[in-house]
Each structure stands twice: as structure tokens, then as C-alpha cells.
Computed example of a mutant assay.
Amino acid sequence: MTTTLLISDLHLHPGAPEVTEGFLDWLERRAHGVDALYILGDFFEAWIGDDLLDHADQDPTGNAALAIRVAGALRQLADKGTAIYLMHGNRDFLLGHRFAAAAGAKLVTDPAVLRFADQPVLLMHGDSLCTRDEAYMAFREQARNPAWQEQILSMPLADRLQLAAQLRQQSGEANSSKAEDIMDVTPTEVERVMRDHGVTTLIHGHTHRPAVHEMEVEEQPARRIVLGDWQPGKGWEVEIGADGDPVLREIAL
């Protein structure tokens, strides 16, 4: 029997050790023995470059030590036969092939179409669906620019750590003044993306609003499955078994 697990929005960082410990326990208890694990973005609260793995002694924030520990745990799972896939989120868009290699994982594009029981399923982080948030969409376009990323990665480590902290603070301040619907997905964009990819099932994260939304695409029954974010004591997963039917589930950590 084949089993695939999907998770997103763990936002791992040193200031939330309960989530890190819960995730590592989940890896051993729940993910052990599954065929594939997909992490659909915002795995880390922030990612300033894969060279962070070399500088644990220069990182007073503890992010480097956390990344090394998490990569090691994923590598153990991969070495036992589980295929691991990482998708970029809006917080960890600088996550690179070096971290993926250390974790025994592969990077996947956003969006990605997979087949389960011969049915296509679209996987996304979900931030690109929030088109009504024009300020964020402008930042997203900049942040995905290879030239901009190269410029950021050329900065000294200490400067990048400071920049990451500033961006998190600015994001929090900006989101506090935005209407709730602006930060949610745009229904017409969801329908367009699903139609363009020829799917009737979409799985994504980002909005922190876990739910299964029944809808129609091209007059066909469809569904949008939203993964929730992980918090102390609680997380969210989607399980897809041999029948290809995705099941959204709240999990205790």
C-alpha cells in the first residue's frame, strides 16, 4: 500500500522549540515508512541561504543549529526509503539545492502536478493565489527574481540575518492592517490555475485556514484542500493512500 503525506507552514525557528520537537517526533512516529513526503513551503520561518549550514558558530540566533538538526532528521527518513520533496514558500524562497541534498530531499517547482491513482493533483504553496494582496504580489515578483536573490545571497551572513528579522517585522505589521479577505486566495485565480492545469483537486497551504472547499471547475466537481500551519501541540497533514483520495487531518504533536 502506497502512502504520501503532505504538510506545509511549519515556520520552524529557534523561538518555537515545541513545534520543532513536535515535527521531529512526527517524523519518527508518523512519516516513518511512508513512500513520499511533500513539504509545501514555509518549512522555515526564514531562510537566508544554504551557507548558513557552514556557520553555526557565527549564528547567535540558533537558526543554523536548527537547520542542521532538521536536515539530519530528514536525511535519516530519506535513507530509510521515503522520497522527500521541498517546495518554496514565501518565507523560505532562498532554500537551495545544498540544503535539499543535506536533507536527502529534492526541490519541486510551484506549481507541480502529480498523479495519484491516475488522477492529477495540483500542489502549490498558495501565496501566488492571493492576487488581491497587491503589495505582497509585488514583493513576491521581486523575491523570485534571480538577480535580486543573487544580490541578497552576496551579503555578509550577519547582514542577512538582520534583513530577515526586518522583513518578518515588516510583514507582521503590514498584515495586521490588511482585511482578512485580501490575504486569502482569490477564487477566480484558483479556478484559472486549476483549469489551466487540467485538475479538479488542488492542495496548498500559506493562508493558515485549513479546510476542504467543494467547488466546480469547467462544470466539473472539484475541491481545494488547504493545509493549516503548525503550532505547539497541533499540526496538519494530508494523507493520500492507494485509492488516490486526499484526506485532510489535524494531528496532535
Score class of each variant (00 low, 15 high):
37 L>G: 01
104 G>F: 02
55 H>E: 12
78 A>F: 07
124 M>Q: 10
44 F>C: 03
46 A>N: 14
76 Q>G: 04
77 L>D: 14
124 M>G: 05
125 H>F: 07
93 F>N: 06
78 A>Y: 02
55 H>S: 14
56 A>E: 10
46 A>W: 05
42 D>V: 00
51 D>Y: 00
92 D>L: 07
112 A>Y: 14
72 G>P: 11
130 C>Q: 01
74 L>N: 00
33 G>H: 11
91 R>N: 02
109 T>C: 11
113 V>E: 15
84 I>L: 13
54 D>S: 15
116 F>D: 14
103 A>R: 09
59 D>W: 12
74 L>W: 05
86 L>V: 02
70 V>M: 10
54 D>K: 14
44 F>P: 01
74 L>G: 01
82 T>K: 06
122 L>H: 09
89 G>P: 02
102 A>Y: 01
32 H>D: 14
69 R>I: 13
84 I>D: 11
112 A>P: 12
42 D>S: 03
31 A>G: 05
133 D>L: 13
126 G>E: 05
99 F>I: 05
131 T>F: 13
122 L>K: 06
101 A>G: 12
36 A>F: 05
133 D>P: 09
47 W>V: 03
71 A>K: 01
37 L>N: 02
72 G>E: 10
108 V>D: 04
35 D>H: 08
59 D>Q: 13
35 D>S: 12
88 H>M: 10
127 D>W: 06
76 Q>P: 08
103 A>S: 05
87 M>E: 07
55 H>Y: 15
33 G>Y: 06
32 H>E: 12
80 K>T: 15
37 L>S: 11
28 E>P: 07
62 G>T: 03
124 M>C: 15
69 R>Y: 03
71 A>H: 02
61 T>A: 00
52 L>P: 08
101 A>V: 14
118 D>L: 10
53 L>N: 06
116 F>A: 15
131 T>N: 12
66 L>N: 13
58 Q>M: 15
87 M>I: 10
67 A>T: 00
88 H>S: 11
96 G>D: 14
41 G>Y: 09
111 P>Q: 00
105 A>R: 00
98 R>K: 10
86 L>P: 03
57 D>L: 06
98 R>T: 12
118 D>P: 04
54 D>N: 07
88 H>V: 01
67 A>C: 01
122 L>M: 06
131 T>Y: 11
125 H>M: 06
125 H>C: 09
94 L>W: 00
77 L>P: 09
127 D>T: 11
132 R>W: 14
129 L>A: 09
90 N>A: 09
